[in-house]
Simulated assay, not measured.
Amino acid sequence: MNQLIRPRQGRLIAGVCAAVADRFGWDRTLVRVLTVAAVIFAGLSLWIYILLWIIIPSDG
């Protein structure tokens, strides 16, 4: 499987959703929609997103 790396192209904010989608072979839009829904309905996921933004390295 691919490594968990935030892509420089195709990302909207930080590339976390794109990295997760690419790593597991999922659709980027689906991961983004699920992330937005999780942030709206469970505020803790915003902190998880920010933490992943810091932890996951960017390519290049």
Score class of each variant (00 low, 15 high):
30 L>Q: 11
6 R>G: 02
4 L>I: 03
27 D>T: 14
43 G>P: 01
53 W>H: 07
54 I>A: 12
4 L>M: 08
29 T>V: 15
56 I>N: 00
26 W>I: 13
10 G>R: 05
53 W>P: 00
51 L>V: 06
50 I>M: 04
44 L>G: 14
16 V>R: 02
49 Y>G: 01
3 Q>V: 09
25 G>Y: 05
33 V>L: 12
7 P>L: 02
51 L>T: 07
8 R>E: 11
36 V>M: 13
44 L>W: 06
49 Y>S: 00
49 Y>K: 00
27 D>V: 09
44 L>R: 10
44 L>Q: 09
29 T>D: 14
56 I>C: 01
47 W>Q: 01
22 D>I: 02
15 G>V: 06
56 I>E: 02
4 L>V: 04
51 L>E: 03
30 L>C: 14
46 L>K: 07
36 V>I: 15
36 V>S: 10
5 I>H: 02
59 D>C: 05
18 A>R: 09
36 V>W: 09
40 I>D: 08
16 V>I: 06
20 V>P: 04
4 L>T: 00
25 G>M: 05
32 R>V: 14
25 G>F: 03
7 P>Y: 09
59 D>V: 08
41 F>L: 06
28 R>Y: 07
31 V>T: 13
11 R>I: 09
13 I>Y: 10
42 A>M: 06
17 C>P: 05
38 A>I: 06
39 V>G: 10
49 Y>T: 01
27 D>I: 11
47 W>P: 05
10 G>K: 03
12 L>T: 14
19 A>Q: 00
46 L>R: 08
25 G>K: 10
7 P>F: 06
53 W>E: 08
47 W>H: 07
55 I>K: 03
18 A>W: 07
16 V>D: 01
53 W>G: 08
21 A>W: 04
6 R>E: 00
26 W>A: 14
30 L>P: 06
34 L>H: 08
30 L>V: 15
14 A>V: 12
53 W>L: 13
6 R>S: 04
1 M>S: 10
31 V>N: 05
15 G>L: 08
21 A>C: 04
14 A>K: 15
19 A>T: 00
